[in-house]
Design a protein around this nucleic acid. Sequence first.
RNA 1: GCACCCAUAGCUCAGCUGGAUAGAGCAACGGACUUCUAAUCCGUAGGUCCCAGGUUCGAAUCCUGGUGGGUGUGCCA
Length: 735
Amino acid sequence: MAAPTTVQQLHLHLHDLAAQAVQALGGPAVELNLAPPPNPEMGDLGFPVFPLAKPMRKAPPALAEEITRELQTRAAGDPYIAEVLAAGPYVNFRLNPAGLLRLILHEQRSERPFGSHQAEAPQRVMIEYSSPNTNKPQHLGHVRNNLLGHTVANILSFYGHDVIRANLINDRGIHICKSMLAYQRFGHGETPERAGVKGDHLVGDYYVKFNTEFDKEAEQYALKRFKDDLLQHVFAEEAGVFLAEPATLAAFKKLLAQRPDPALTQEAERLQGHFATLKALQDQEKAQLNALLKPIKDKAERQRLTEQPPQAILDLRHQAWTLRQEIAAFIVKHRTPEELDRLHTLWYLSRRMDKDAYFNSDDSDLGAAAREMLRQWEADDPEVRALWATMNGWVEAGFHQTYDRMGVRFDHIDHESETYLLGKDLVEEGLQRGVFHRAANGAVVFDLAKIGLSGEKAVLRPDGTSLYTTQDLGTAARRFDNHHLDRLMYVVGDEQDHHFKVLFGILGQLREGWQDRCHHLSYGMVLLPHGRMKSREGTVVDADDLLDLMERLAADEVRARYADLDEDEIQRRAVAIGHAALKFFLLNYSPPTSLTFDPEKSLEFTGETGPYLQYAYARTGSILAKAGLDPAADLEPDMDALAALTSPLEREIILHLAGWPAAVAWAASKYDPSKIAGFGYQTARLLARFFSDPDHNVLKSEEPLRSGRLALMWAVNRALGVALGLLGIQTLNEM
RNA sequence: GCACCCAUAGCUCAGCUGGAUAGAGCAACGGACUUCUAAUCCGUAGGUCCCAGGUUCGAAUCCUGGUGGGUGUGCCA
């Protein structure tokens, strides 16, 4: 084998050397699991001999000794291997750091960037991310999606694939009509310019306006239509249940706040404490009942026990009932008739009334108007289309401002208004071929049993209109055909896991091989300390507001450190640092992890954060600059200088850098930016240790160590710069 | 009911596809600014890797069963 010219080849070289040694000793040809030992004193890269012990009929430690001796003779004179040593049942290599760093420097100067793949053929990959609705501005959830998609695209592209960044803007449908209708009725011709508001926010305000107006309408309807029904339920058997609900008591507390009476409010708060007890009682009851039922298989006996549980369980229920009564009695005693009406209505709306059904009924004025508007849109009504074009224009302009701020971009932008009719021909063809069948009511459906799931999935309604899935099938097909894709990826939250399983399954039935070329990059939700973001409750973290906040917080930090810096420079750094903190925070979680965003705790600039990486980078750059070296220009390594790098920390840094190609390969194959973030953080951590140690001072050290350390700084600066670039984090030369 | 995901330090998370003594950040406590930039470093403390079995030379990691939490399960999008 030729001498290794890359770190990856070196890894293979070591593996082959070890495998040859094993075979020379009569062992089997197996893959050896080369991994770093837990302690650097043991070596840099090693493998366990357990799997070889049985076939070679030797005790592991003795075998390790034997393999080590064999390797020592075979590796003699190898420029990359300093030592081979046995450690119990393990065989470890100690590498020559100078040789390793020379390889790294060589790769960093080569045309193919260090860490990009060397062997695989490039693939054409389309990755769809963001996919926003044009009825409201983007929020923190979108930010995670945008950054995840954009960063994965960066990684795949860096790795050597041909990447198409796609966005499918959901610009049509009933939800769009809601904001349009509210604007038409309440907007008075307002524009973003006149209101001084970003277009997406302006439209979002009308979407909210629609919902509050609709809620009012629904409440009035419920009160008028179901008054008798409400009263009956409330004072009948469900009284205790309804009144003793957390939501009811909370609503009542709000009502109490309108007629200030501290004593009552206090009492309401005390009673709210009962809910925790109620929950505990319920859990106990459930646990006891389950334990009781568990050993009993007979169905009738189980049912009897469920219906007539033993006294202990009844006691628990009684305790709970007493608490409920206390809460109910409090509300009944202190409510005014108006308040009770309001509570009834809220209860009915939350428990009994199907708001979607109401929206879709002729009873709802706003619902009917919105649906009519959708019909007009589909019929190309010029007035509706004009309004739609105007408002969508505002929203998209707003989106693009936000994308630009985040550094997120796209190669292809599709609109659902152009794609929503796609897929029908595909369904027709599938129907002919028996992929789909016609249901009794005329709908065209897919039998999910064909792909190992249960139930049916409709792809055409009885009236022949298409569904979301139909459109997705058509859009995917068009993308495969137009772009000759090897892979099609969707960055979408994990609540749509099932949808994509179905979609890909059907695609696979329609076209051989498409299923395996599709991938759903599923990621966890962004939660707030109190739970999910709910626009209804005003807990949504707006993307633009968040970016503003990050910039402001970062500006405060910069100002606190460099009071005399001019304001432009403060702002420039604040944008870089604030965005870095946000990006790193979101990308440092592995995608499947759902994360809790706590503004108090999440917006940090110290510890494992983006600015920590930027800081380490800035310091390497500063040292290079002081030495008169340009980090952008190439550096010619001098072996004597590199050989002077012998401290444990220097070795550790070099070894860590050698792990970059593996980190990129891993991130690219798993679509996981957190691997890159983790690598960057480890790099920064090693550097922080390096900088804090006076013995490792670069500029004050003697030649040839000084040149060696400068070469190391140069290599680290490049590697960290590339990692930060992939994460979309701006580098700074001074912090 | 069924399906999928998750459970690791007080909190938030890693843990390289089964290897050697399970790691970081935050929070707590103690120490280091005459600095190649303290957005930093060093140290102390903190663990029944949810529980019970199984596979294996070896399990946080794989399998089975349970418990707890989340998300789905539209002829909605």
